[in-house]
Design a protein around this nucleic acid. Structure first.
Length: 480
RNA sequence: CGGGCCGUAGCGCAGCCUGGUAGCGCGCUUGCUUGGGGUGCAAGAGGUCGGGAGUUCGAAUCUCCCCGGCCCGACCA
């Protein structure tokens, strides 16, 4: 018998993650281009579910999809000083095209704020053109020095929302609205609990007034920034001269927002739910929710079992694994590694007894149920699984969140935590939003993840570094 | 980008130190067998030893350069 190809989590979390991604047939390193990956059908299907869930909500909140050029004139990036400074180190630049050196190089988009700024300038004249609510599904390239599949790759897929508003208040409402959409998809669809909050000034998006994020906790206790929403203020409006005339006839710059989530969410999904046997998908994220494995020996049995299998599979929309030459056991392992929520087993004994075996992926519990109850039991099990997986993840987040009242405490808690060994915690501490304080936290390889929107702790307190009074505790953790 | 480990059949690895024309397990193909958690037996197919240059009569093996992967950092919406 072959050994499990998946490294246990407690042995080496980072290797476990790699194993799950590959054994779950989600993706593999491209190898031909540094830091890039190939997203395989089983992984892309998960992305398609996310796209559908997000896109539906974007449309419901009044946004429309657009598509903008992949290449950006280098000069565009330079129009917003902070923006170019933030992105310059990770840009890939096209200098030759059509066999000729370009007069002005093109940058492969790391994000599209600058291009959007340009077109907003063309499209917006009046307050009647506002708000302009756009979204783009696209790929972007950032030349990261260290990559991990799904979590940080050179090229990745994402959506980037870009909106323009006539007032700052309205823009801020948009920023929070979309942050909440992200939180809703993370929690209700991905069963991945998140903390909504503001990034510190030091951690904000290059060119933004304020950034907000949803932060999730992986099974090793490390934080994952799962989505961001930015209040761009009038920074890009001014850089690209995006003005509009108000009702009163006054000219003003638009107030912009941008927000995005990426294929990184898939990495978060994996590190939230999967186990030592492989991928575990919450039912709402599974493109294939139920698989039926038929079992038979002789030809007469095959006919009998298959007849019942086809009928039952149709009732619950199950995929029947009809592959020849694979034993049922091999098929069980196959689907288990791929995270299918429910696997049904149907053999001669079941056909004779009018029963069927139902196994749920998350708990591994197997039960024999009457065929007449199949549809109801499958529906109930999927629903229970979705709920249970969220509760377990939420509990883990709670169990690994601790309070600290001094910098030394924070250091002690986060000391010796790494991606491979785990042991990470979310440390809640009072800390003033000041870049020098972020720097102090960085000393021990952690960061302020965000300042939660809602305070679930003890309200105001003294900053553990400066002693100044601050409104609430912030989340400090090591992160991907 | 710094430090460490690594790249040999689809996958996991041995061989490398001490140069002599490539091997094991799994998987794959065919046949029989088996089938309720990776069936068993038999016969087969499959390799530019990551790439290039050098040393040598001869390089998977020694030297140099490059490409790529993983981990720890730095960096990073």
């Amino acid at each position: 018998m072959a050994e499990s190809p998946i490294t246990p989590r407690d042995k080496d979390f980072a290797t476990w993650y790699q194993d799950v991604v590959i054994q779950g047939d989600m993706a593999e390193p491209a190898e031909i281009v540094k830091g890039c990956m190939v997203i395989k059908p089983n992984g892309y299907a998960v992305w398609e579910v996310l796209q559908r869930e997000l896109d539906t909500r974007f449309k419901a909140t009044g946004h429309q999809n657009v598509y903008l050029p992949l290449l950006i004139p280098e000069s565009f990036l330079k129009k917003e000083a902070e923006h170019v400074e933030g992105f310059a180190p990770e840009l890939a630049v096209v200098t030759v095209a059509g066999g000729k050196k370009l007069e002005e190089p093109y940058v492969i988009r790391p994000t599209s704020e600058t291009i959007v700024g340009h077109f907003f300038g063309k499209w917006i004249q009046s307050y009647r053109d506002l708000p302009m609510l756009l979204n783009q599904w696209a790929n972007v390239v950032r030349w990261e020095l260290r990559t991990r599949m799904f979590l940080r790759t050179t090229e990745f897929l994402w959506q980037e929302g870009h909106t323009a508003h006539s007032t700052h208040e309205e823009a801020l409402e948009e920023v929070i609205r979309m942050l909440k959409v992200y939180a809703e998809v993370a929690e209700d669809v991905m069963a991945m609990p998140v903390i909504m909050g503001a990034k510190t000034k030091a951690e904000k998006f290059a060119g933004a007034l304020r950034s907000y994020s949803i932060e999730a906790m992986m099974q090793n206790g490390l934080a994952l920034q799962a989505g961001t929403s930015h209040d761009l203020g009038q920074n890009f409006g001014k850089a690209f001269d995006v003005t509009f005339q108000s009702k009163e006839g006054k000219l003003d710059y638009v107030w912009q927002t941008s927000w995005g989530v990426s294929t990184r969410l898939i990495g978060g999904l994996i590190m939230t739910h999967s186990d030592d046997k492989g991928l575990v998908l919450p039912p709402k994220m599974a493109h294939r929710k139920v698989v039926l494995v038929p079992i038979f020996r002789k030809e007469e049995e095959r006919a009998l079992v298959m007849e019942a299998a086809v009928k039952l599979a149709a009732e619950v929309g199950a995929h029947i694994d009809t592959r020849d030459g694979h034993s049922p056991g091999a098929k069980f392992f196959h689907w288990e590694r791929r995270g299918v929520p429910i696997v049904l087993e149907l053999g001669p004994r079941d056909v004779a007894a009018g029963t069927i075996v139902l196994k749920r992926r998350d708990t591994g519990v197997k039960e024999v149920i009457p065929q007449t109850e199949l549809a109801a039991r499958v529906a109930a099990t999927l629903e229970a699984m979705q709920k249970d997986m969220f509760i377990r993840a939420k509990q883990r987040l709670a169990d690994n969140t601790v309070i600290a009242n001094s910098l030394e405490e924070v250091r002690a808690i986060l000391d010796d935590v790494t991606a491979e060994k785990g042991g990470g915690k979310f440390v809640m501490a009072h800390l003033k939003d000041d870049p020098s304080n972020d720097a102090a936290i960085k000393e021990f390889r952690a960061s302020v993840r965000n300042i939660p929107l809602t305070d679930e702790y003890d309200g105001p307190g003294k900053c553990i570094i400066t002693g100044e009074e601050v409104e609430r505790r912030v989340v400090i953790a090591k992160a991907y």
